[in-house]
Design a protein around this nucleic acid. Structure first.
Length: 920
RNA sequence: GGGAGCUUAGCUCAGUUGGUUCAGAGCAUCGCCCUUACAAGGCGGGGGCCGUUGGUUCGAGUCCAACAGUUCCCACCA
């Protein structure tokens, strides 16, 4: 429907369309409601046509953001909305500051999540991934990716995101894949990557190992089971122990120890019982053997001070294959390790019983059987923490297996420095502590995953054992021949490792690999854009991603990957609950945009999003954003409705208004810039909001409005248009669509004169005197309106004031403006005569002539005020007569106290005078 | 178990190195207005022992300590 600038054939250009729009404005009534649906798509298309989002290196200062890549098959949620709104604000602002802004979008292959989805889909068709093999499976995975991928990037366009779409990348595209492989080979050659058998976190649903970061510990109400372990070869005569020993005997006199465990289903893997050698209760067990209940395996009692004497009975069952600590004990005491679980956590042949049963069922059954066999002493309630897989939400099973690891000591070391010395700044700064603590206690990173969807580990196994690591099979073959001396080896003899790499092993290179900085670190783009400027992300991936990107940046470039990290909060619902599908409290962002407009939603997000704080999202905030759009829209309707009278002379009131607003604008502009520089975006937006709504609409426009039926003078009109433009410039990064629309509606624009590429207004010196005058006027008008309200005076009836005139020219200016705002009639007099009651503006006393006033009430109020002022004066005088204060406090503070004293005295005098007059 | 943060109006939050008439903002609420840009609006108003208790100081929302409540992170006690 809209013109494409690449076509020679031109339908109306956007400039022509705006002309049309201006024509419509001036000739016919338009809706008082702003309609984002008619505006947003049009401008996004225009920006794309003009290629404004695309960046190439030039002589300007670069400003770069790389997107935290969302899952390729994901859909937009509120977290993305907030995160990307912030990025777009920063990018648009940088563009308007004359920087070469480049925001690189892309997606992440999300190894586990995507593979799980594809496995599920195949399962519905009755297909197992192992049946079809790796190659066939990957075909399905790519199909899935192409079918469902990239939706989220399209949704970002609705939000207005000005990403450089030509740079859209994917963690599994060619350059990114090759970068990952090269990094792996490089780190392996540096000796930082090794392969070994270790206890890892096993996800029995996804059937893969996980890193420590992918395990989430949850509080669980579970049970502590107390089981009998009979003494081996006990004659049944029982025994009395030494002082302090606790020896259990059954009805036949046989002795047994009691073990407390939360996981009775692992007894088939027990290969020892462990006591603390210093435990007086259990001395009688030293050197003995016990029998595992039900299983009837004889196991030794070992001694280790790892065991907590106070916990349970002080006896610990040791299952080296299924518990991290037991594994350590097993290593230390040279115990046998019996793996009783299959990969999917069902009981294996090795368990000898309950074969094929799930862990959960086995636990239930084993307790029943124990009870029957009289081997269960008791069951207690117990709260403990159980590790769950972040992805599949099933309990992790510790498992001994062969995996690839990345050594962390060196990388942690180089990643710590830039954050501690401030080369990278965190907002909020509190995350620095967290970061340091993690890096200082880091363990090696398990980077292999038993998955197919991802980057396959470039290790190639040789027929005679051993392996080589290389970027390509061909290179691997060369290495293999070198290594073995066997020149007859062919590619077919090499078998590549089946495992894929952890997804984060590709995302940690993101800021480098996006500009091809791993494969070709000398390329011009990389040199121009790297390091990037700001990273906007959530604190829950500070270890997964942020820390590791810093490691990679330092390792490969000896330079930080970004200079600032802005941590957003978690988006919650208005009750403070996390948004989740099951609670149904997560609004669909696209529906929100349909309802409130992208600008409205963006404002709603930003109004309550201070860095690092969780935000409690409420649709009402979007409503506020939408209302703000309407307000701006109506200001446009007003201004566009004005007729310019070329012969009109600028009235004094308008002259003042222009001067005042200009001063106010410059003040807020400076504050806003400062707020944004400190990443206080919600404060910045609120400042612009109030400047626009209050100062511009409620005060300025009311002050300069020409009387009904008259035209506006050219000077005032020009100033108003310029103010309006400046406001839109400030607001554009936050609300891009409506500001572009207004930009084109208020003035004729040449081709390419679009707000998105316009420059931010420059800060001018603030006219402090004008600001003071403006503040006085506001107080004067507010108080007058307050009096009117109290008097119940209708708006169309003048409120008559009496002012003791001491500086008539100054007052005249104030009055002529105030007149436009609050319908007053002013009498100047040397001394007030007609008025019986007064109100005060700063230190000036204004009399009210309209005399249908409750004198008694007025007296009472004045007396209360007098009391307050006297009390205040007393406290100020107290301070000033305190030598320690006068000598100790800074001179400026003392001076201010003196001013307070003088003001208070003036007010008190005025109040007393009024009281005297009223009481006459 | 260890560590960090938070507690200010009905709600969400500002409050910068202790010193403005310091107790603030937005929203919500209440009253009056369909005043010719805007009722998704205008004008006006109410509302808070700044979590509690001590301490430092001439002076504390701001600094210190303890306590209470709350949130998050880390950790191998079965």
């Amino acid at each position: 429907m809209f013109c494409n600038s690449k076509n020679g054939e031109k339908s109306p250009s956007i400039a022509e369309k705006s002309l049309l729009l201006r024509f419509i404005f001036t000739t016919m009534e338009i809706s008082s409601k702003y309609s984002p649906q008619e505006v947003e798509g049009k401008w996004y298309e225009h920006w794309m046509d003009k290629n404004y989002f695309h960046s190439t290196p030039d002589e300007r200062e670069p400003y770069t953001i790389v997107i935290p890549p969302p899952n390729v098959t994901g859909v937009l949620h509120m977290g993305h909305m907030m995160n990307n709104t912030i990025q777009d604000i920063l990018i648009r602002r940088a563009r308007m500051q004359g920087k070469n802004a480049c925001w690189v979008p892309g997606t992440d292959h999300a190894s586990i999540a995507t593979e799980a989805k594809v496995v599920n889909k195949l399962a519905q068709q009755g297909i197992k991934k192992t049946d079809i093999g790796r190659e066939e499976f990957l075909k399905h995975a790519w199909d899935w990716t192409h079918e469902h991928g990239g939706i989220i990037l399209k949704q970002l366009r609705r939000l207005g995101c000005s990403c450089d779409w030509e740079r859209t990348s994917f963690t599994m595209d060619d350059i990114r894949s090759k970068s990952v492989i090269r990094a792996f080979v490089d780190l392996y050659n540096k000796g930082l990557i090794y392969r070994g058998v270790r206890m890892v976190n096993w996800d029995p649903k996804a059937l893969t190992a996980l890193s420590d970061e992918e395990v989430i510990f949850k509080d669980e109400h579970s049970k502590l089971f107390y089981l009998r372990y009979y003494l081996h070869e006990d004659d049944g005569t029982g025994a009395t122990g030494a002082e302090g020993e606790i020896i259990h005997t059954d009805e036949k006199g046989r002795r047994y120890a009691v073990v407390a465990t939360t996981r009775p289903e692992t007894i088939m893997g027990d290969t020892a019982m462990c006591i603390n050698p210093a435990d007086p209760k259990n001395q009688w067990l030293r050197g003995k053997k016990v029998v595992v209940p039900l299983v009837n395996r004889v196991i030794p009692v070992i001694e280790d001070d790892y065991v907590d004497i106070e916990f349970g009975t002080g006896c610990l069952k040791v299952t080296p294959a299924h518990d991290v600590n037991d594994y350590m004990l097993g290593e230390k005491h040279n115990l046998q390790s019996i793996n009783i679980f299959n990969d999917d956590a069902t009981l294996s042949e090795a368990a000898g019983m309950y074969i094929g049963m799930s862990r959960e069922d086995c636990r239930k059954q084993i307790i029943i059987d124990m009870k029957e066999a009289g081997l269960l002493e008791k069951i207690e309630d117990y709260n403990n923490k159980v590790g769950y897989s972040e992805r599949t939400n099933v309990p992790i099973e510790p498992k001994l297996s062969m995996q690839w690891f990345l050594k962390m000591e060196h990388l942690a070391d180089i990643a710590l420095k830039p954050v501690l010395n401030g080369d990278i700044k965190f907002y909020p700064a509190k995350y620095v502590n967290l970061y340091r603590h993690w890096l200082e206690n880091i363990k090696d990173w398990c980077i292999s995953r038993q998955l197919w969807w991802g980057h396959q580990i470039p290790a190639y196994y040789l027929p005679e054992g051993g392996f080589v690591v290389a970027e390509t099979p061909e290179e691997a073959l060369k290495l293999a021949i070198e290594k073995t001396g066997n020149k007859n080896l062919t590619l077919k003899d090499l078998r590549q490792d089946d495992d894929a790499l952890d997804t984060w092993f590709s995302s940690w290179l993101w800021p480098l690999s996006l500009f091809n900085g791993i494969l070709d670190p000398d390329n011009a783009e990389f040199k121009y854009y790297y390091p990037t400027n700001d990273l906007i992300t959530a604190p829950d991936i500070i270890f997964f991603w942020v820390a590791r990107m810093i490691m990679a940046g330092e390792e490969y470039q000896n330079e930080v990957p970004f200079k600032n990290v802005y941590f957003t909060g978690i988006v919650r619902d208005k009750l403070g609950r996390k948004m989740s599908k099951s609670l149904g409290n997560s609004p669909d962002p696209i529906e929100l945009i349909d309802k409130f407009g992208a600008d409205g939603v963006r404002m709603g997000m930003m109004l309550s999003a201070p860095a690092g704080n969780d935000i409690l999202f409420d649709e009402a905030l979007c409503e506020q954003g939408r209302n703000f759009c309407n307000k701006i829209w109506n200001a446009l309707r007003l201004v566009k409705g004005w007729n310019v009278d070329e012969n009109a002379v600028q009235p004094e009131a308008a002259k003042m208004a222009v001067k005042w607003f200009e001063a106010r604008f410059n003040q807020v502009l400076a504050e806003t810039n400062d707020n944004i520089d400190k990443y206080r975006l919600s404060d910045a937006l609120m400042g612009i909001y109030k400047l626009t709504w209050d100062d511009f609409c409620s005060w300025y426009l009311e002050m300069v409005k020409a009387p009904q039926g008259q035209g506006v003078d050219p000077a005032t009109y020009a100033a108003t248009i310029q103010f309006f433009e400046h406001l839109m410039l400030m607001l554009h990064p936050f609300m891009p669509f409506i500001t572009e629309e207004i930009w084109h509606a208020i003035a004729e624009r040449k081709d390419g004169d679009d707000i998105i590429v316009a420059q931010q207004p420059k800060i001018q010196a603030v006219d402090k005197e004008a600001l003071e005058q403006y503040a006085f006027l506001q107080e004067f008008v507010n108080n007058t309106r307050g009096q009117r309200s109290k008097l119940n005076l209708p708006n169309n009836e003048s409120i008559e004031l009496e002012i003791e005139d001491t500086e008539s020219s100054w007052w005249e200016k104030i009055i002529c403006v105030a007149n436009k705002l609050c319908n007053i009639k002013v009498n100047f007099a040397k001394k007030r005569e007609k008025s019986s009651i007064c109100f005060m503006v700063v230190t000036k006393t204004i009399g009210i002539v309209n005399n249908h006033i409750d004198i008694e009430a007025e007296i009472k109020k004045l007396e209360e005020d007098l009391k307050y002022q006297q009390g205040f004066l007393k406290s100020v005088e107290g301070k000033l007569s305190n030598e320690k204060f006068v000598n100790g406090a800074p001179a400026a503070v003392v001076e201010k106290e003196r001013k307070k004293k003088a003001d208070a005295e003036e007010r008190i005098a005025s109040i007393m005078q009024q009281l005297n007059e009223l009481k006459k």
